[in-house]
Nucleic acid binder design. Structure first.
Lengths: 191, 191
DNA sequence: GACCATAGGTACCGATCGGTAACATCGTCA
DNA sequence: TGACGATGTTACCGATCGGTACCTATGGTC
C-alpha cells in the first residue's frame, strides 16, 4: 500500500479520505458538503477534485475504506481464534455488541449509504451493495464450516442480527437491544 | 379523523401528506425537495407552507402517518388473533417477511429517518425515536404476556430481527435474509 | 349584494450546493 | 539552477435548495 511514507507527511488525498470518513460516518453523506470536508482536512476544494472525480467518487472511496476496517477487525478475530469458525463468529458479535453500545455509534456505513441512496442504479448504492454481499458470503462461509442442519437459515439469522444491531444501535438509547446481540448470536448458533 | 369528507374532496394538506408519504419513503427525505412534493400533489408551494411550518414539520407529519399505518396493521393482526400474543407476534413477522420481499421495499420510515438525521437534537430524529420506542414497548408487552424465562432478552431479539429486516430488506436482493424472518422469530419464540 | 376568511397561483428571494478556471507557491530531484 | 508535479489561493459558475410576498379566486354568512 502507501502507508510507510504517507504517515510521515500525509498527502491531500489521504487527509481528505480521513476527514470524509469521520464526517460521513457521524453526520451522513448527503448532510455533509464538500466544503466542510476540505475545511476539516485542512486542504482546499481543488485538491479534492484533483484526487476524486466527484463527491460520489469520494463517497465510494469512503465506503471502500470503511469496508477495509471491517476486514481488519475480521483478520484480528481470525488470528485470535484460528481454525474455529464458531469462536470467530461469536467474537465478531461480541465486538459488535460492544461497539453498538458506545456513544456516537451510527451503525454500518454501507447500510446507511444504501438508505441514503435508494436509486438502484446509483454508483454509491451499487458499491455499497457489492461490499455488503462480500460480508454475507463471509458469514455464510463460516456457517457452512460449522456443519449445522440448516446453514442457510442460520446465515440469514446472523445477517439479520447484524443488520438489526446496525439499525437498533442508532435507534434506541444504550442499553438497547444491540447490547444483547452476543447472547442472541450464541442462542442462534446452538439451535 | 378527517377521512369521510376528505376522500370526496381532499384538501391541499391531505394531498401533500399523501405525496410526501410516497416520495419520502421511496426516495428518502433529504433527497426529495419540496417542489417535487407539491408538483406530485398537484398543488403549489405556498399551500404546503400554510399547512406545515417547514419541511421538518411536514417530515414529522410523514413519520406520524407512517406510524399510523403500523398501528393499523397491528390492529388487524390483534383482531385476527384475539388473546393470543404469540400468534400476534408471529403474524406480524410473517407479514413483515412478505413485505420485505416485495420489489421497492425500503424498510422502516422511522429507522431510515434516524439514519438520515443523526443529530440528537433534530426534531425529526427525536420524533422518530419517540415513535420507535412505542413499537419497542408494544413488543415487550406482548412478550411479557407470554411468560417466558427471559422476556427482556426475547424482546431484544425480536427487535433486532425487526430492525435487521428493515435494513437487510433494502441491502440484499430478494430472496434475501429478510424472507426468513418469520421462521427465525418462531425459533426465538420457542427457546 | 356586501363582506370576509380561506386557499390557490406567480414570481421571487438569499443561501447553499457540487464543481471549475486560472494562477501562485512549494518541495524534490536531475 | 531549472524543470516538474503537487498543493494552495481566489474567484467564480449554474443549479437547486427551503421559504415567502403579493395578488386573485372561491365559498359561505348576514
Amino acid at each position: 500500500m502507501s502507508s510507510h511514507k504517507a504517515v510521515a507527511r500525509p498527502c491531500a488525498a489521504d487527509k481528505i479520505r480521513s476527514s470524509a470518513r469521520d464526517l460521513f460516518y457521524s453526520q451522513g453523506i448527503r448532510a455533509v458538503g464538500v466544503d466542510e470536508i476540505v475545511h476539516k482536512a485542512g486542504v482546499t476544494k481543488p485538491s479534492l477534485y484533483r484526487a476524486f472525480d466527484s463527491k460520489d467518487g469520494l463517497t465510494t472511496a469512503y465506503l471502500s475504506d470503511y469496508q477495509q476496517e471491517f476486514w481488519d477487525r475480521i483478520a484480528v478475530i481470525c488470528h485470535d481464534h484460528p481454525d474455529n469458525p464458531r469462536a470467530q463468529l461469536v467474537a465478531y458479535f461480541d465486538g459488535l455488541a460492544w461497539r453498538a453500545s458506545q456513544p456516537g455509534y451510527r451503525g454500518c456505513a454501507l447500510t446507511n449509504a444504501i438508505v441514503e441512496y435508494p436509486e438502484p442504479e446509483h454508483p454509491v448504492r451499487q458499491e455499497a451493495a457489492r461490499l455488503k454481499q462480500q460480508i454475507r458470503e463471509w458469514v455464510k462461509q463460516k456457517v457452512c464450516a460449522l456443519s449445522v442442519s440448516d446453514p442457510d437459515l442460520l446465515t440469514d439469522g446472523l445477517i439479520l442480527l447484524m443488520e438489526g444491531t446496525y439499525g437498533g444501535g442508532q435507534v434506541f438509547r444504550a442499553p438497547g437491544p444491540a447490547a444483547q446481540v452476543g447472547k442472541l448470536a450464541r442462542l442462534l448458533l446452538s439451535s
